[in-house]
Structures are given as C-alpha cells and as structure tokens.
Write a protein that binds this DNA or RNA. Sequence first.
RNA 1: GGGCCCGUAGCUCAGUUGGUUAGAGCACCACGUUUACACCGUGGGGGUCCCCAGUUCGAGUCUGGGCGGGCCCACCA
Length: 875
Amino acid sequence: MNSDQTPRLPAVPDRPSLDGLEDKWNAAWSRLGTYTFRAGTPRARVYSIDTPPPTVSGSLHVGHVFSYTHTDIVARYQRMCGLEVFYPMGWDDNGLPTERRVQNYYGVRCDPSLPYDPDFVPPHEGADGKSVRAADQVPISRPNFVELCERLSAEDEKQFEALWRHLGLSIDWSQTYQTIDHHARATSQLAFLRNLARGEAYQQLAPTLWDVTFRTAVAQAELEDRERPGAYHRVGFKKVSDGVPVYIETTRPELIPACVALVAHPDDPRYQPLFGQEVEVPLFGTRVPVVAHHLAAQDKGSGIAMVCTFGDVTDVVWWRELHLPTRSIIGWDGRILADPPEGIDTASGKAAYAELAGLTTFSAQKRIVELLQASGDMVGEPKPITHPVKFFEKGDKPLEIVSTRQWYLKNGGVDLDLRAALLGRGQELDWYPDFMRVRYQNWVEGLNSDWLISRQRFFGVPFPVWYPLDGAGNPDYDHPITPAEADLPIDPASDVPAGYTEAQRGQAGGFIGDPDVMDTWATSSLTPQIACHWRDDPDLFAATFPMDLRPQAQDIIRTWLFATVVRAHLEAASLPWSKAAISGFILDPDRKKMSKSKGNVVTPMGLLEEHGSDAVRYWAACARLGTDAAFEVGQMKIGRRLAIKILNASKFALGFLAEGGTAGTPLALDPAAVTDPLDRSMLAALAEVVAKAGQALAAYDHVRALEATETFFWTFCDDYIELVKDRAHGQGDLAAVASARTALGLALDVLLRLFAPFQPFATEEVWSWWHADGASVHRATWPAPEELPAGGDPAVLALAGQVLGVLRKAKSEAKLSMRAEFASATVTVPTAGLAAAQAALGDIKSAGRARALTLAGGDVEVPALTASELVPPEG
RNA sequence: GGGCCCGUAGCUCAGUUGGUUAGAGCACCACGUUUACACCGUGGGGGUCCCCAGUUCGAGUCUGGGCGGGCCCACCA
C-alpha cells in the first residue's frame, strides 16, 4: 500500500482549511490501512506498545487525551523510522466500576449459583444516573452478567474509539481486546494455572484487609489513608494480682472484647514490672497477658496498647509474632458477631457482649462507651483527635481486618530473593523520566505481604479451580482440581470438572467450584500477554513480546506497572517491555488535579471539535513526560495557529513547484540545483534541526523535538520566505530562481515529515496536495540530515534575518508600512559576519525594499542601522 | 517519619557537562491590510532566576541549610 511517495504536480486549494480534516483523513487512513500492523515482520523491525486500556465504564477526560497523545507521537515517529508499529487498543471492562454500572443500568445483580439463561432479557435498560435499587435488582448468572457487561461496554467503546480516531491516534483498530472477553479470561486463567503449577500462587487462611461495603478482601496496593476524626478513650485494665488498673488509650473501644493482650515497649520502665502479669479486660472479664514488643511506641497514648484481633495491621504483627490467641468479633458485614469469642465466659461478660452483638462498629462504639462509663472503667470523656485510617481506594468505610481464606501470588512481599529479582527488573527497565524508577523501588522495598489476588465478588475472571468434597462434604483446599488448558476459559460455578457430573456439585464425595474472582489487576497485569496473543498466536507473540513501550500514569506504578513486571518475570523470566513512559497529571489553572468532583472537567470531544485535533495535540506535546501540566486553552490556540501556518506556508512553497517543472510534471527536487548561499544556508540550518529533532525523539523527548522544529519553522516563514519571495516569484537569473524554488520544496518536504507525529492532520493534508493517492506522510521515511545538501553556512540566513530585522525596526519606529522603501540604507554588521551577510545582499535588498543597501563591517555585536533614508509609500 | 519532583517575565514553560548582555510563546503596548497566511504581519516594554551560606576567576546551573507548592510511601494504640 501507499508505497508511491513520489511527488506529483501539486494541486493546492485556494483557501486551505483545517475544518473537516479529522473526518477526511480518518476515513482515508481506515480505508488504506495506514496504521495496520503488518504481520510477519521480524521482531527486530517491530515496535510494540502496551497501550493502557481505559476503563470504559468511566468517561474519558483531558488527561487521557494528554497522555495518549504522547504515546501516539512515539508511535508515529517509530513508524516513520521504518519500524512496524504494533499499537493495539484494549478496553478495561473488568472490575468493580463496570459491575456497579451494569447493575444499575440493567437492574440486575450477579448470582454465580444460577444457571445460564440463553433467552434472558434484562428487566430494565435505564439511562445512567437512574440506578435501580439493590432490592429491585434481578439475580442472573455470571455468564449472563458478562454478556450484559460486554453489551454495555460495546456502546462505550464506540464512543471511545470515535474520540481516539478524532484525536488522530494511529492505533491499529483490528488489534483490540476487552479485559472481560473470552480471550482475556482464558489468558488470565492460563497464567494463573501456570502460577499454581509452579507454586507461585497459593491459598492461605489469614487476617485480611476487608471492605465491609463491598464485602471483599483488598490488596495492599489498593489501600489509601484518609484523615478521619477519632477519639482517645482512656480505659483501665485491672491487674489480676492486685486489682490496680493499668490505663490504655484506644480509638477503637468497641474492640475491647477482641482484646488478647496489652503490649508495651521492652525498654519502657513504666511497664517493665508488668511483663508476664495478667490483667482483666473490663466488662468482659477475660484475662490477658501484658507483653513486650519493640513496635509498641512509648510516646503514643499512655505508652501501652491493647492488642485486638484485629484493629489494625500492627495488631496482626503482634498477634503473629507473639503467638497470641484469636478472638474475632467482626463479621464480613462489618457488624459485631452474634456470639462472643472464646475467652468471654462469665455471665456478666456474655451480657455485656450481648449489648454489642449485631451492631455496626460505629454503634457498638457508642454503646460500649456508655457501658464503660457506667462501670467506671473509662476515665473522663473521649478526647477527639484526627488520625489516618486505612480505606479501600474505592470504598467509603474504614477497612476491617478479618480472617479469611484467600489466594495469593508471590510478588516479593515475603520471598526476599524474588524481591531482589524484581528490584533488578526495575533497574533493567528504561524509565522516562528516569526519576520514576524510585517510585517503583520504594514500593517494592515496602511490600509487607504477597499479592492478594482473590476477591469475594461475582463479576470478574473466576479462579479456574474446583475442590473435591470429602465424605462429610468438606472441601479439600489443598488439592484443587484444575481444568485442561485447552478448555479455558471456564467458570467453575457452571462448568464441571473432568470425571464429575453436575449432580455431584456440592454433594459429599463430589466437588465445589471456587467461588471467588480475581483482582482486576490480576488480569490487567497480563495486557502484554493478552495483546500479543501469548495463548493462541505464537508467531505474533514472538514478533511483539517483550514489548517496547509501556505508557502509563504515575499513580499506578505500584499496581499496573509493578504487577505486569511480576507476571512477566514469573511467566517469561523477562521484563514485559524494555521502556516505560510515565505521563503527568493535568492540573486546572488553580494547580489542582482535575477531577469530576471539582466540576472542572472539560469533555474531550468538545475540546477537539472546538480547537481542532492538531491544536489539542500541540498542547499535549508541549509537556514533558512525567511532569504535571496545566490545562491551557491558550496553548491550543497556538497549536491551531501553527497548523494553519503549515497549510499556508505549504501553499506558498508548492505554488512554485507547479510553475517550476515542465507541464504536467513537478519540479525535480534536485539538491544540486540549490546554488544560492542563502538557500544553502537555510537547508544547512534545517539539517541541524533534523539531527536535533531525531535525537530528541529517539530519547523520548518530544518537547525538544517539537520546539526545535517549530522554532526553525517560524524563522523559515518570517525570514527565509520573506527574503526569497521575489526571487521565487521569478526575479533574477534562472539558476537563482530554480535554487529558491527547489530549496522551498526540499525544506517543505522535510518540515512536513518533522511535524507529522505532532500535527498528523495538517501535514497529511499538505502531503496529499503533491503526492500520489494513498501516499501518506505517516508512512514516509523520517528525515535524515544527509538528504539535504551539505556545506551551507547557517550564518548566512541568521545574519540576513538580523539585517532584515534592523530594516523592519526602522520602519516600525517610523510608524511606516513594511512596504515603505529605503532610498538608501547602510547597515553595520559584525566584521566576522560581513561576508555571510553580503552573500544574501540581493535578497535582503529585495525583502527590505531598499533601493540601495550598503553592508559595512564594524565593531558591533549585532547588526545596526548606521544611515538610512526612508521613503513613505505613495498614496 | 522516609523519599521524589518543582520554585526563572503578569501566565505557561525552556535554559543539555558552570562561561558573553537569562530565553520562547501567550498576555500587554504601538504600528501596518504586504498577491502563502487578518485564523495575519512588524516592532516594543517587561525578570532580586524563592531565601541564606559555601565551592569557583565566574553560579539560574554545583554543595549545604532554610522557606513554599505538589506527589509517593509509612506499623495509624
């Protein structure tokens, strides 16, 4: 396709315009397959990109436009460098946001115990915002739920695709995936089974951070701290030996029935005498030991803390390291369990517990404070404080800690050899910008457990395992039954393991499916394997993996980036990609991160339609990787101006190409025809820009490349074109005219290619004016300095521009039109530059409208007007 | 508590191993309709490079200490 990049006779529109270019060229690119990945290309000639799959249940915002533009600039540059770019697009429709949206939109909820209903019709097809109350939601099977998800996502994906196309992303739209589709589920389950077989995935019954709203376990990476009001409650625990109270201060008095010990620092002289003694838990009568541990802070509260199972993660550490018993009192719903834990044996203790049973932790706290005050065990009133509390990042209530059986994947949180290896992967990866590597290191070094990958949700990729039930109907978790890899994906809630029948489900001696689904990151961490078709296309996988680039946001280094590194390390013993490009956030003019809640979000499509895609891309391209950028409409207007200038300057230059050749053929752009020193100077300066821009883009510094190109382009327009205008129009001898026209054509040819990654629409439009149908600037070869004539002196253009500026300034200060003529003028230039300036004398005279111009060498730093006589234009 | 990034013109930002008089665009002011472009052109004004102290012949740049802004992590009784 479009192999013919040969220039033809230019056909330049009378009034070039940016309007409609997005639709026009998207249709053409789609028709011609301009961005289609050519299968069969050897790995060394492929550049593959692990595009972030946007969450389709959310909405796109300008931050997406910003960062995806950065990636597209890379893709277009690499493609022009001759690499075959593998640039897929995924849609993230797996996980809680989609689950909630499908529930509300269709009025359903997922119940994996139900069988698939092929004729199911959703009861409700509502608009967003009008959610169906949970009580009215119809339960449906997981396969039905997945179908609805795919149906709803398909609508979103159309909108997203339209936006990406309008923005000009050079994605290969035949390479798409959904994180909940058949292929992604199969890939996710296959990777899990391999992890299981190698012992990297394992189950454990252990205290787990638990969200009581979603009723699921959450992983370390999904936590965030929020400052919350709380209060210290000073409560006395009487020593068993003498009845003298020991006072602790707690923010969670409702957990007193779960108390298993008091703990103080081993060096704390106040409490050293107590170590080994027992105290009595107030209200409940349990006897607990006073123990020592170095994590107890002497300066917090009263310096001695109660250990509960479990109030926070420190409790878990104490419980584990000091081998304390377990007294759980909080259930999966976040309420106090109906029955008291072991250890509360007295009648009064049971009575006190009964006061709390069934209450939420919030209500239980109020009640127990009343009880403690009534019994005299609490001193004074609660003392209000604010303190950080752990939340699930998507949750609204503080996390609790409950003991549950969960699946874990080794990620270096426990295995220090693995941690060292993963830190090594962080070193091996090229980071843009480099300082982002530190965030990865900090995170890996701070891991305190393996990756908890199971979620007690219904929608998602199920764990592809069943468990045999023994004669008493109890599952044997240690010997899971796994499916054949060829059968994936499976749903253990509806599929039956080999050797069993559906009738044996849940029966003694039969089997039961694993009820959980995987963490959304457990699937997203496999985007390279999904996109490159690890599971089902070995040739494509070999040609694209490990990938070249992972572009992503800085806030998900600890989740998406790290998890992807883990999966590739475990499965392929390699990095998933060699480079990571980390984009910054978009800030509103008040320097706050843009967010919906602040009501300052601009819809991307409206922005593109208002300013034009090249303009918005220009704004994005002006910001470096990893640096937060302001949302600036002004910058987009500059981008639009640049795009229009490209059209107009091209119109000017191409007009002479049409004149310059014999009828029906274009002027041959023969570098040897460029003989004039000024023309050769301009092309020499351009050659430097080509080298600089190429180096910058190769180093993922698109800002520097754009800046160099843009700066040159404005000089080219304002000085060079003005200087050679008359000559290009035909003044002077034939060789001089041909030199100017050829130089204009050569420069334009190079400039369009330099701008192509940034301004794909304007450059393609101009390219089409003088290239064969189907030829695309985006499949043209990235310019090399060698294609321009060597030996020109850049100083000629620089000095000619300065002298011209001197003449312009005189007219401006005289408040005269630039058309005003000098009867005569003398400009003194630095002696060292005199020869260079003289070389352009004719063009300077012409452009400056000087009937007589003398250039004199002198001891000046910049050219200066030393004598002049201006003649106002007549009329 | 640990770490990272940032602080340069009214605004958004460049300033590459230390080296002339610190730059660009926007905004602002003045002028000009000039056959590529009024979606334009030409010219101009505008800075205590956050502060202090060092290193150096020389610091926006390097070192140390502050101040201010943003972000990440942290066992949060």
